[in-house]
Design a protein around this nucleic acid. Structure first.
Lengths: 209, 209
DNA sequence: AAAAATAGATCGAATGTTCATTCTTGTCAA
DNA sequence: TTGACAAGAATGAACATTCGATCTATTTTT
């Protein structure tokens, strides 16, 4: 008998099933519009199991948050491993975020699009978390190395990543219809070169061809 | 007897008191963590009044949304009235948003920071609303006029406003500690000139400076 | 090897609370 | 007197959480 039912493969461990179901539901409807019973049904699991594993609804959200945060940190960590310039690092992170937005939409939505303060009141805002700090550090290093124009770190960081994050939001909201990866090159260009029509290519760019 | 109690001046009309209280509470705690009773208490109003005026909790949120959206539209409208270049218009809008973020924090937070889909499921995402469309139009016009480099409208719009919106979010989350207006000039500069350290000033800039 | 015992995970009906909404009564201006 | 609005106690539905029963897998005993 073939397993036509693809929704929740019963061989996955219970806690994974719970987290997966919760992620999908939280992103689709928002934390407060999802009941434990919804999660329980979608995960093919009993209410009791959810409480045993995570201690409640908030526990599920928190576990999800920590888990995905760790993956996010690892992604940044990988970029830091490579021997790259600050500018290349920033580009690579943006590239990755764009790709994840297309391939693992809900993960990105949960991390970048959710208002965690409304359901995880004890967590600091995500923009003060390690991965975001690391991103700002990269910008700072680029500035120290004379690669990025000198200036106020907040402004520089927002200028580097603001456009990308904005596009991710628009994409997640369904306002942008095409995959973000199509826009990557051009966005990078606008970010570093500026937007003026008559902006002269920099010496660097001219050398690069 | 002096009115020491400054919280809710009783002379304001009832519906205004309700909206003001709701705005503050929704922004501070999030829509789902605020009960009608909380609003009722903070507004010094009865539950009945809230239902008479707005038909319920969602009605209050919706009325607030429409009201602030209209103000937002008017702000953009004012900028469109003035005879300005596209670039100047964009800058002006950013300037205004920064100022409002400092002086009318909760209004900006409710419009730019809330996840309306989670409590106003019938509203389209705010980024597809008229003011945001107008902002994208300005960018398009700048492109058509040869003022902004040609390119994909989404990318250009995100590049123009992405940094500013990012900074607003950071400020609202309390991550940026100083008033945004301090950063305005530099942000504008980064946005239009790009971020490379050796970016040559454009002919335009050289003339201006 | 079979049976019994133990630990630990899973289950879901029952509980108690929270909260949006209703509805009846009270107030006041015209 | 009437109409419009304000008040807040009462209602009932939705929901997170509890807890004892049930099941499963592993170890111990015979």
């Amino acid at each position: 008998m073939p397993y036509l039912k693809k929704s929740t493969p019963a061989n996955e461990p219970v806690d994974c099933r719970i987290l997966t179901a919760a992620l999908d539901l939280f992103v689709e409807r928002g934390f407060h519009n999802v009941s434990i019973h919804d999660v329980q049904k979608q995960a093919n699991v009993s209410i009791g199991s959810i409480y045993n594993h995570f201690g409640g609804k908030e526990g599920v959200a928190k576990a999800l948050y920590y888990h995905l945060m760790k993956e996010f940190e690892e992604m940044i960590g990988d970029v830091m491993e490579e021997k790259l310039s600050a500018r290349e690092r920033c580009n690579k992170i943006i590239r990755q975020l764009f790709e994840y937005t297309e391939t693992r939409r809900n993960i990105v939505a949960y991390m970048l699009h959710a208002k965690h303060r409304e359901f995880l009141p004890d967590e600091p805002p995500i923009c003060s978390s390690t991965p975001f700090k690391a991103m700002r550090n990269i910008v700072q290093e680029g500035m120290d190395a004379g690669e990025i124009r000198p200036g106020e770190p907040w402004v520089l960081a927002a200028s580097v990543f603001g456009g990308a994050i904005r596009m991710i939001h628009l994409r997640l909201d369904g306002v942008i219809k095409k995959p973000l990866t199509l826009y990557y090159e051009e966005l990078i260009d606008c970010t570093w070169q500026g937007l003026l029509a008559d902006a002269a290519p920099t010496p660097q760019e001219q050398k690069a061809g």
